[in-house]
């Protein structure tokens, strides 16, 4: 499955990057979202996949035994998902505010801070 996912992740990265390189604010934020999914999925995949065995210690057991999914990447991804959520929601609201102030969705209209001659 890693092989298949490798291609899926590659496509997600390409799509995310491509969207972010558009001039539209909306595509930018959606691109960021795709990029986030891609990164999380990547950690999950390179952390190796184990089908169906969650890292839960049985009711009457003391240690996790047998095959089980690596819990650490899961914990990392969980943290990353939540952080990503916070950051992306903020970015979305930022874009909304920018649209409200600048009055356009076109990033090419938002170059004033890079213009040398004021």
């Amino acid at each position: 499955m890693e092989t298949v996912l490798a291609f899926v992740i590659g496509i997600l990265f390409a799509v995310g990057i491509y969207l972010m390189m558009r001039r539209s604010l909306v595509k930018l934020i959606i691109g960021l979202g795709v990029l986030g999914h891609a990164a999380n999925l990547l950690i999950f995949t390179v952390g190796r996949l184990t089908r169906g065995e969650p890292p839960l210690i049985g009711k009457h057991e003391e240690v996790l035994s047998g095959t089980f999914a690596d819990p650490l990447p899961q914990a990392l991804i969980l943290t990353a998902i939540v952080i990503g959520f916070g950051v992306q929601v903020f970015a979305a609201v930022l874009i909304k505010s920018a649209y409200r102030i600048v009055g356009t969705d076109d990033l090419d209209e938002m170059k004033s801070t890079d213009e040398t001659q004021p």
Partner: peptide, 27 residues
């Protein structure tokens, strides 16, 4: 806001690369 959009976007790209790299580092 205009500055922030560039700042936020590019820094998020950096974070995404950092995150990827961290995941790979662990793997």
């Amino acid at each position: 806001l205009e500055g922030a959009i560039k700042y936020v976007t590019l820094n998020l790209v950096s974070s995404a690369i950092f995150l990827m790299a961290t995941g790979i580092l662990y793997s």
